[in-house]
């Protein structure tokens, strides 16, 4: 059991990161090997110039404005979920480093930082979780049901599991964030620290699902994170 725990806390996280980054690299090179299409795939109206294309793509990415125009309910679900995810990712950065310049700028002490991240983290956790339930429910209705693949349920299931275990820690267990931070920073700096105990079994599940997600990411539709930039740029070329 101790060996399994050791592998889980100190070995598989690195494997997950390697598969995640290596897998993305593999997929990108797989795309690159394919012959570029000998045509201009523009969709009109399109922005002018390279910079215009890039700006427009970025605005699209951060607002999903195309979806806003044609499918409002889906936009609400999709946008809020992605917004929550973005905030959560920004928050989780604090597990490894910190926004020192920001705290300096705001002249916030440790107590204020903690309070802020508790509030912001709670909001982000809910913004992330509730739309996921909506997106899952959609999969069981009407034409979307026809369309859905096993992969769609798997990805949603993983994300929901991550959201629930994360929110459980945040809202119910109120763990010692210091302890978790120590552990993750230890992983990051190859100076291993004891695994956190204050977050209980939820941390174990949360950590496990995130590792699974990282391994699955490059080989799933989650590659839209990167691929959609290409497809949007092609359509605006």
């Amino acid at each position: 059991m101790r060996t399994v725990a050791f592998l889980f806390y100190y070995i598989t996280p690195y494997i997950a990161v390697i598969v995640f980054l290596g897998g993305i690299g593999y997929q990108l090179s797989r795309w690159r090997q394919k012959r570029p299409v000998p045509a201009n795939l523009s969709l009109f109206p399109r922005p002018q110039g390279r910079l215009g294309r890039l700006m427009d793509t970025l605005v699209d990415m951060f607002t999903l404005k195309g979806l806003f125009r044609v499918n409002r309910p889906l936009w609400v679900g999709g946008f809020i979920m992605h917004l929550g995810l973005l905030l959560l990712l920004l928050g989780h950065v604090r597990a490894f480093t910190d926004y020192y310049f920001l705290w300096d700028l705001l002249q916030w002490g440790e107590e204020q930082q903690h309070q802020f991240s508790a509030v912001a983290g709670s909001i982000a956790g809910l913004l992330f979780m509730f739309p996921l339930f909506y997106l899952l429910a959609r999969r069981f209705s009407g034409a979307v049901k026809w369309l859905s693949s096993p992969e769609d349920y798997l990805v949603l299931g993983l994300l929901i599991a991550i959201a629930i275990t994360g929110n459980h820690m945040r809202f119910v267990l109120d763990p010692d964030t210091h302890e978790i931070r120590q552990f993750l920073q230890g992983l990051f700096r190859f100076r291993w620290q004891p695994a956190p105990v204050s977050a209980g079994i939820s941390f174990v599940y949360h950590f496990a699902f995130v590792q699974l997600l990282m391994v699955y990411f490059p080989f799933s539709k989650l590659m839209h994170t990167i691929g959609s930039v290409f497809s949007k740029m092609v359509a605006k070329s």
Partner: peptide, 22 residues
């Protein structure tokens, strides 16, 4: 015939269903 865009189209479609009404 699978060109580069087709490959990533196939890999990244999330089947969100926005195209259903289109």
């Amino acid at each position: 015939r699978f060109s580069r865009p087709l490959q990533y189209y196939q890999d990244i479609c999330v089947r969100c269903g926005a195209c259903i009404d289109a």
